[in-house]
């Protein structure tokens, strides 16, 4: 015969095992449904960010969609996801131009920076002399008398 404390303990263990198994089964099922929508979008957003497209707003909206989904407001979450899909498609269309303009700006800035020492070397003595003479424009030069 099992004592009452043993029975209570067994019941608690059974309850614990049941709650864990429910958690195990429920979590992946809930996650997969959202992951199927968010996963590919995150992949596309990652590709966009690699092409120097500003994706901060899109990332914020995706985060909002996930939070809405987890809070139970799945209709609104899906609506946000759909709007993000539209936005990502638009950004993908513009990504070529954005990437090109980024690279042009980057290379132009680097070229300007690397040209600075050459310009400095050639122009500084001339500028310095021009300034030196300009500041002494009104000066009278007198030859010192020889002793």
């Amino acid at each position: 015969m099992l004592s009452s404390s043993c029975v209570a303990m067994l019941a608690r263990l059974l309850l614990l095992a049941l709650s864990f198994s429910i958690a195990l089964q429920a979590l992946p099922a809930l996650s997969d449904e959202l992951d199927e929508r968010i996963g590919p979008l995150v992949e596309r957003v990652t590709r966009l960010s690699e092409r120097h497209v500003d994706v901060s707003r899109v990332v914020g909206e995706l985060d909002r969609a996930v939070k809405l989904w987890d809070s139970g407001d799945r209709g609104e979450a899906l609506r946000v996801v759909e709007s993000v899909e539209v936005e990502v498609s638009r950004l993908e269309g513009e990504a070529g131009f954005i990437e090109l303009s980024y690279r042009v700006k980057l290379y132009a800035t680097v070229a300007a920076l690397l040209a600075t020492p050459i310009l400095f070397y050639t122009l500084l003595p001339r500028l310095y002399l021009a300034l030196w003479f300009r500041l002494r424009r009104g000066w009278v030069v007198r030859v010192a008398s020889r002793r």
Partner: peptide, 28 residues
């Protein structure tokens, strides 16, 4: 086994700090 999970999306150099209600199941 996993009991709860919390998800989100973060950009580079972004962080998220959020409160969670952690469930404590039946403990032997």
């Amino acid at each position: 086994p996993a009991i709860q999970e919390w998800r989100g999306v973060l950009g580079h150099r972004q962080n998220s700090t959020f409160k969670v209600a952690v469930r404590i199941p039946e403990i032997p």
